[in-house]
Design a binder for these strands. Structure first.
Lengths: 340, 340
DNA sequence: TTGTATGCGTTATCAC
DNA sequence: GTGATAACGCATACAA
């Protein structure tokens, strides 16, 4: 059943006016007499008239909507980013559409295509772990479609970006571990295709180097689907714990990987921090309630969303092409708790 | 800067054809010669033509989008529902727009108005804790706008609904507490305006009655903002624990309230379950990792989203008005862990 | 002060 | 087999 809404035409017919008069009256144009205005506005109110945003979009050639692509919203970090995006977008009169890639390259590509085919005026994206080929993004960007990257950015594309200081965050956390005397520190990384993974790994290596700990590549493991695939984390941990020289600490590079480790430890009855210490990136609001409470690197997620959205609106609303792009780097917060 | 996309007109001009021919060729119409089709399709592919969904929406008077309003997506239960909604919607060629009410009646009303002004073809909604006045929903529903309620439904409005058996879920959980010997069981409820709150409370009362425990109204507390306001939970717990006869167990009626209790206990050094037991509704994927691990009532969130979406699409796509509405009641799952 | 005509991108209808 | 035209709902340049 089609729901039929009221249009300007309906109002015009009833009041014996032209659609243009009604349109102008509703927009409070100076050309219209106070009397007519009152008539139109009151009637519109009475029958609950609302302009059709679709028609407006077609006319103005813009949707006043922003598109967001993230791997998943059921993730503390991303839902906090989204809160930041939403608050800025709404205050500037923009609406928001989220699409989840579920860490799938194909889904990301499809979502992107849909959004860019004029459903939204611009895009905020944190790419999927699978994404290695950026041509879908490059093409759009080159044709002038406004894109801002956050969190998982793409180096090859020149535009505004918002990230955290991944290197420093991990360096601080790893140094914390080495200072506590941990020697065999495993690193469970996200997909190796992400720039952020490299930056984080460098922080880890630097800290180990400074503590005169040799880097053992067998302790560095990648989860190319970001822990989204069933037993990705389990497999990686099995490998690490099967070796003769077991780790005494673990660094986990994302929310999902961090809780993934905890689930594994619980299942295999590995005690934290007695048997192995754990630090990880996490914006989980309950990480202090865990058993043990987690030592975490926390990202300013909300702020990230706000800044990224302001950047995007700048690109969208600018009268002339923007050539000078910025990359904003935010600081992480390091919170020490029982797990180390 | 406005991003200019390719239109049928552009193709027509370049190939010296009319827009109608191009349109037909692209839709593989039988009227068009194979030769022309090939020409058009190949060129369209080359320049990456994508039809403008806005123009299509205007023409077809439908958007192929569904609107979702929930209190917040940073909530395990709702993000799981959303996953269910998304999967069904996409498989049926629909796109999804989420709006968060953040438990504010005003925000809910605004979001609703925006969506119903033809941005979406139908609406899935779990109302905010603040919502007492349903006229915004009643009006739309009466005018034939397709709405399906899930989780927090509105009794007054006749349409499809999907809920869980709240009475039974709470009855089972409370009985579990009485059987364990708990006598003073406090009940931290969500907003008293929600139907679901009444159903749940009835389950609690029935279980107490069967255990010959008198109902103590001072142990029943409401959080009318669903725990969204700063120290709502803290205030309520302060009251309960300030009384002489402290509770020996607590039932929390939502995800947010359950973790809210845990945070309070941690802060005030109240041991669970030694000082007080805790059961609550929760779909948190990490509730087994908490300290202590939580005894919870878990809802089939994903399934709820799927069923609700199927109902909504039925309303949208039906040729004639639907008069027979269903309320689907799903079973909850009760998981016993350390907190009781 | 108000009305008429046009166009945003697309497709259906009717003409040739 | 292809082209011209109108329409979806709205805003605006131009006419009156």
């Amino acid at each position: 059943m089609k729901y039929e809404a009221v249009t300007i035409k309906d109002i015009a017919k009833v009041l014996n006016l032209s659609t243009s008069t009604v349109s102008r009256a509703l927009r409070d144009s100076y050309e219209i007499s106070a009397e007519t205005k009152k008539l139109v506005i009151e009637y519109a109110e009475k029958i609950n008239y609302r302009p059709n945003p679709i028609a407006l979009s077609l006319k103005e050639r813009r949707t006043r909507s922003l598109g967001i692509i993230v791997c998943e919203i059921a993730n503390s970090f991303f839902s906090q980013v989204i809160d930041g995006i939403e608050s800025v977008a709404y205050s500037r009169g923009y609406n928001v559409t989220f699409l989840q890639s579920h860490e799938s390259f194909d889904k990301e590509k499809l979502s992107l295509e849909y959004l860019a085919s004029r459903s939204v005026d611009g895009l905020l994206i944190s790419v999927s772990t699978e994404t290695q080929d950026f041509s879908h993004l490059t093409q759009l960007s080159n044709r002038g479609f406004p894109i801002v990257f956050f969190d998982r950015i793409v180096d090859e594309i020149d535009t505004h970006k918002v990230i955290v200081n991944n290197f420093k965050g991990v360096y601080t956390a790893t140094t914390h571990l080495t200072e506590k005397g941990y020697k065999r520190i495993a690193y469970i990384a996200n997909s190796e295709f992400l720039t952020l993974t490299k930056d984080r790994l460098n922080g880890y290596k630097k800290a180990l180097g400074e503590a005169d700990i040799e880097i053992d590549e067998s302790l560095i493991k990648y989860c190319n689907h970001g822990g989204m695939i069933n037993d990705e984390v389990e497999k990686v941990l099995d490998e690490i714990f099967a070796s003769k020289k077991k780790p005494d600490a673990i660094f986990a590079s994302s929310d999902k990987l961090t809780t993934g480790c905890l689930h594994y430890f619980k299942k295999h009855n590995i005690k934290v921090p007695k048997n192995v210490a754990l630090v990880g990136f996490s914006n989980n609001e309950n990480s202090d309630l865990f058993n043990p409470s987690l030592t975490v690197i926390k990202q300013p997620a909300m702020e990230m969303g706000e800044i990224a959205t302001n950047y995007l609106l700048e690109l969208i609303e600018s009268k002339r092409p923007i050539k000078d792009f910025e990359t904003r780097i935010l600081d992480t917060e390091f919170i020490v708790r029982e797990s180390t």
